[in-house]
Amino acid sequence: MSDVTMTVNGKTVSRAVRGNELLVEFLREQLRLTGTHVGCDTSQCGACCVHVNGELVKACTIFAAEADGAEVSTIEGQANPDGSLNVIQQAFQDHHGLQCGFCTPGMVMAAASLLKENPKPSEQEIRHYLQGNICRCTGYHNIVRAIMAASGQEVEGGAIAAE
């Protein structure tokens, strides 16, 4: 065991971790932040995506000890300070960007990284960026529409909730 200290969604946390404890295990089991999902545990699906020092990372493929001293953000830290959904989350709701919701935390974290790097991505750029995020339900189309909308771009047909 070794001690780690990191900032998770703005709060400093210190815990003892096993050498082979994955960041996703640390978040889910020690901190009970279960919004970060484990879909595959083989680095393929992206359901476990979080930000470590501002960069998109698969939390199933980094050890907790490697995030010692880091700033970590998870889906639980994404809402606005007043608790309302942030722009990306709201767009996912408005554009029906989720069905079962299992992939959604990872999708939202990936979308946030994309929009930070590229505030007005094309549809092609969005699809390319999401290569490491698998969704078994939506067929991706509405996820792409949601991210287009979140970036302030026109979405053909407008919001589904408004129809």
Partner: peptide, 9 residues
């Protein structure tokens, strides 16, 4: 190589 999350690590 891989996807954005893989490339960040």
């Amino acid at each position: 190589i891989g996807d954005p999350a893989v490339r960040n690590r």
